[in-house]
Write a protein that binds this DNA or RNA. Structure first.
Lengths: 235, 235
DNA sequence: GCGTAATTTAAACGAACGTTTGATTCATAA
DNA sequence: TTATGAATCAAACGTTCGTTTAAATTACGC
């Protein structure tokens, strides 16, 4: 009666130890309500643990937010860099095809390794949400965890898009992140535009298939630009 | 000594009557900290009015949030529809050039009428922020105020991009909104990617000039798609 | 100038916030 | 079995939240 704790047999939603349950509950709630609007009491109730458990295991609410990200960001970025490594070693120095680069980036963002559980997809949405958070803390965490990946993909894109200046490339990566993050942060806005529900289930594959040509075409747009005319002339 | 109130001569930051000062203070603070993290005491302190003034003039914090948007969204969307009307009557039934449509949309979003004050630019950033708010209230406000404009631009785009199915078009508009909203919500993320500061001042024109070819090229990408291969094969 | 309505003010309301405490329960090794 | 450190628990901490109140002040038609 002491070897195997009775706690292990609980509701299927409740996974394992207290810290993990807190992390998963927090992930869900942060996504639904944002960081500021999610209280400790909401988190501990959802995780079915004591109110004091968060402070005991993580120290503070801010530390919990950071832990939610670091838990998933490491594997995700290792996966992204792994894809890029393999692709570049296969190409043997030649520039990679643009579509391949973008697919390695957004593919990793939308369908994570071992995609059996949907935790990865939830986290992808949360990532999209976090990038538009005003609070500096969250952004700093994301920046530090992502800067290496961004550097690598920027270098790969630079080789694949030699007609773009460094400044233009930065802008376009910015636009790409925008589309990805906005799409990740939920299909609610999309449902507002469309009348019909999306046929889910195959959601990650669908969205990657839709995003890829849009982003590649945008990235490949001509570099030079004529000045905007319409707004100045009309009215 | 009773005709002209002495209050009119105040700091240049403080504009006119109490409700307006509250609206502008709230706009600034919501942008900086988000909606949930901005308290009534922060707002009333920034506006230099009494704490009870928000509830007296607007009723509640939620009503204030709504008022912040409705004050600017009406003129902005009237401006967008006006541009589109003029363009379509000029074209006399023929499909508009894609670039023209997109420019009318994002141009209005970034440089507002009477752009002397930067209130419009602040609001554009706040709009981008609001689109990624989890709370349903803000999204509903934006949806109701924007659905007419979206419908009109969707129709115009449909004519300009006949090779896209209705579903594809919805997806691509979604991606476009993502890039716009992400770009609107601040250049902070962009500064993280780039090392250098952007030469500001001409910011709205610059960003429109950069965004336009990216979005147009993305929208014009071929409709049909081949299945993603890399992620399935590698690893 | 007076009276009435509109506005501003200081103070307080109950509720919820993040966090801390001290006792209690649990797992595990001696 | 007992001693020990980890974990959980109920309860309370002080603070801040959005909102309300009632009195004081202001604006303005008469």
């Amino acid at each position: 009666m002491a070897a195997i704790p009775i706690k292990n047999r609980l509701s299927p939603k409740a996974p394992q130890d207290t810290p993990s349950r807190i992390l998963e509950a927090a992930e869900r709630l942060f996504l639904q309500h944002g960081f500021a609007a999610t209280s400790m009491r909401m988190i501990t109730a959802e995780a079915e643990v004591n109110l004091a458990a968060v402070n005991y295991h993580f120290g503070s609410k801010d530390a919990l937010i950071e832990a939610v990200f670091t838990r998933r960001l490491g594997p995700l970025n290792r996966q992204r860099l792994g894809h890029l490594d393999r692709l570049e070693s296969l190409a043997e120095g030649a520039p990679l095809k643009l579509e391949t680069i973008v697919e390695a980036f957004i593919g990793s963002a939308f369908v994570n390794e071992g995609s059996a559980n949907d935790g990865a997809r939830l986290f992808a949405q949360l990532l999209g949400r976090a990038y538009s958070e005003p609070s500096g803390g969250v952004r700093d965490i994301l920046y530090n965890q992502n800067k290496e990946v961004i550097k690598r993909f920027k270098a790969a894109l630079k080789k694949a898009l030699p007609h773009l200046s460094a400044e233009e490339l930065v802008w376009r990566m910015h636009f790409v992140f925008g589309s990805i993050s906005y799409t990740q942060s939920g299909t609610d806005a999309l449902r507002l535009v469309a009348k019909y529900e999306l046929s889910d289930g195959s959601y990650p594959q669908t969205v990657v298939k839709r995003l890829l040509p849009f982003l590649c075409a945008g990235l490949q747009a001509p570099a030079t630009m004529h000045a905007p005319t319409v707004l100045a002339k009309v009215s």
